[in-house]
Nucleic acid binder design. Structure first.
Length: 279
DNA sequence: AGCCAGGGTCTGC
DNA sequence: GCAGACCATGGC
């Protein structure tokens, strides 16, 4: 059980619904530990987080004070200064998109590490959210370093590049094991390089990501959106195809221009809420 | 038992 | 290019 000490830090959360944000399918690196507290990792870091009236309370899992660098990282991760509130208000100028936003008003688009995102969404293919989360957790537990308090961080590309698919058997990732190894090896070799991807146009970066075995259009788009900050990219899975055909047959409304990927988050939440027994 | 899960690969046309 | 089988695993 996580107990916050005086070394906890508070971020201005700007209307964030922490639980909805962490479990809407954009990240698989968090778990509830009780009492409204969540434990999550990003790259080498691990934190406890809880939503309070005055903001988002964060504390290192090691209970060591958060450094300035850590704080800056988590501010970026939670998009504290990202201006998402203002964008949502603009989304709401469109009636249908506004309804989507209001179905999950506290969800925020997280800025996640590239490698975490790449592997997580390779795991996501032909899979469901609870099992994806389980595989990601076993990936961290099996190959990650202690990030403090016994919580294991996301493994490095180098660590996984030294593995064979058979070494990944404990993850029970099935046919995806060899995809994970291929991705780790290409990143470790520099064949896939975050800085190079960052310098590319969306389409070029997408093509580069699809050179990885097990990365097709959908996974590449998720990596672009969630791991590389390409907020105009819209990953199209079966849910989104269904939702777009039904709600936006002519494409995303003009209010979402440049931020179609952010809009997609709310459309996804809306259509899935409806699919689970609403409407 | 059979179907589905935020897809992708591989093969055959 | 494009359809169709196949891919491990687990929940319902």
């Amino acid at each position: 059980m996580a107990v916050f000490t005086k070394s906890a830090a508070v971020l201005d959360s700007a209307g964030i619904d922490l639980e909805a944000t962490l479990f809407c399918g954009q990240t698989f690196s968090w778990r509830a530990v009780g009492g409204g507290v969540f434990c999550g990792t990003a790259g080498p870091r691990a934190v406890y987080a809880r939503a309070e009236d005055n903001g988002l309370v964060l504390e290192n899992c090691s209970h060591a004070p958060l450094t300035g660098e850590d704080l800056a990282f988590w501010r970026g991760y939670f998009a504290v200064d990202g201006g998402q509130q203002a964008l949502l208000e603009r989304f709401c100028e469109d009636e249908t998109l506004g309804a989507c936003v209001r179905s999950a008003p506290g969800v925020r688009l997280l800025n996640q590490p590239f490698f975490d995102t790449l592997l997580s969404f390779i795991i996501s293919q032909n899979n469901n959210i609870p099992r994806i989360t389980g595989i990601v957790e076993r990936l961290r537990e099996t190959f990650g370093e202690d990030a403090g308090g016994g919580v294991r961080a996301f493994p490095t590309a180098q660590r996984l590049a030294a593995c064979t698919p058979e070494d990944l058997a404990p993850l029970r990732a099935g046919f995806r094991a060899r995809y994970l190894v291929d991705a780790a090896r290409q990143v470790a070799k520099g064949r896939v390089d975050e800085a190079k991807l960052a310098a590319m146009e969306d389409g070029e970066a997408r093509g580069a990501l699809m050179q990885i075995t097990g990365v097709g259009p959908k996974v590449a788009d998720c990596v672009l959106l969630y791991g590389l900050g390409r907020h105009g990219v819209v990953p199209m899975d079966v849910w989104m195809k269904r939702a777009m055909a039904q709600a936006f047959p002519g494409g995303m409304p003009k209010e979402a221009t440049g931020y179609e990927g952010l809009a997609q988050l709310y459309v996804f939440c809306w259509v899935r809420a409806a699919g689970r027994g609403g409407q």
